[in-house]
Design a protein around this nucleic acid. Structure first.
Length: 273
DNA sequence: AATGGAACCAACCGCTTTCTC
DNA sequence: GGAGAAAGCGGTTGGTTCCAT
């Protein structure tokens, strides 16, 4: 006998949410608050599964969500936290205000993972890739309660400079009155690392999407600054900060700026000084 | 301008954990 | 303490967009 379905599938919508559905959900939650996800769809007049409503609210509609690119500081913090917590996305998200577990998970899988690999770091173990064979032959992986001791200095330098930020993140969660095992764990690791490492190096990860291939037309143009700021979630023109790219013409719908390289800028990809 | 592959991310699925009775 | 319900979580999928050719 299989698991009973979480909801009645025949009369529920699936796939992308419409504006109207979003509005219904937001309105309902504004009045009644979060919770009771199973009964919410019916009460709100939505033909959706309760789980789907919960996900939509948490990952997209919540008013406190921070949209847009991850900052280098957030990148660093995610790497640091992942090195200690593993794929505990919700725990990691809990220490990055305005970010969701789903968002961080996606970001990890599409950006950070690749960055670490390109730098010769195993994104799972956070050790140097060529040392993973040696790690695999180790007698036992560390117990979950133990933070894996990172042995190669390159990685330590990469991750441990984040201690200050991490401390702040931990302080935030501690001051909220809830001290978890993870907080404890993070404290322990941080204290351990404080003795061993100077905190000078920064990994400085940039979103991979804007790291152009060697033949990229963007790369050789002088006035485009190195800092990629394209807000993909908004699809916004960073030149006028209003319009959106018109795919067919390649021009901004608002300012009609062309995709020039110098004066008019690399539309949607680079901010100009 | 067309096209194919890569990248991205919202949403789903199913398992686990927590809560309630 | 056990059972069932509800919520939470992490892995995966599939549609859309981007970009190089």
């Amino acid at each position: 006998m299989g698991r009973s379905p979480c909801c009645e599938k025949e009369h529920t919508n699936k796939g992308a949410w419409t504006k109207e559905e979003d509005q219904r959900l937001v309105d309902y939650i504004h009045v009644h608050g979060e919770g009771c996800w199973r009964s919410l769809p019916k009460a709100a007049g939505l033909l959706r599964c309760g789980k789907s409503c919960r996900l939509r609210w948490i990952n997209y509609l919540r008013p406190d969500l921070k949209r847009g690119n991850f900052t280098p500081e957030e990148d660093d913090l995610i790497i640091k936290l992942h090195s200690m917590l593993g794929n505990k996305w919700s725990s990691i998200a809990g220490r990055l205000p305005g970010r969701t577990d789903n968002e961080i998970k996606n970001y990890w899988n599409t950006h950070i993972k690749r960055k670490l690999i390109s730098r010769g770091i195993d994104p799972v173990t956070h050790r140097l890739l060529n040392s993973s064979a040696a790690a695999a032959t180790a007698p036992q992986p560390p117990p979950i309660a133990e933070i894996p001791l990172v042995t190669d200095k390159a990685h330590l330098q990469t991750t441990l400079l984040l201690n200050v930020k991490l401390e702040s993140a931990i302080a935030t969660s501690s001051s909220s009155g809830t001290t978890t095992d993870e907080d404890q764990k993070l404290h322990e690791v941080q204290q351990r690392s404080d003795h061993d490492i100077d905190l000078e190096l920064s990994i400085g990860l940039a979103p991979s999407r804007v790291q152009k291939a060697p033949h990229s037309p963007y790369e050789s143009k002088g006035t485009a600054v190195a800092e990629p700021v394209y807000d993909r979630s908004q699809g916004m023109c960073l030149w006028c900060e209003l319009g959106h790219r018109n795919n067919s013409s390649g021009k901004c719908r608002n300012c009609q700026g062309s995709v020039g390289i110098d004066g008019s800028g690399l539309f949607g990809h680079y901010r100009h000084n």
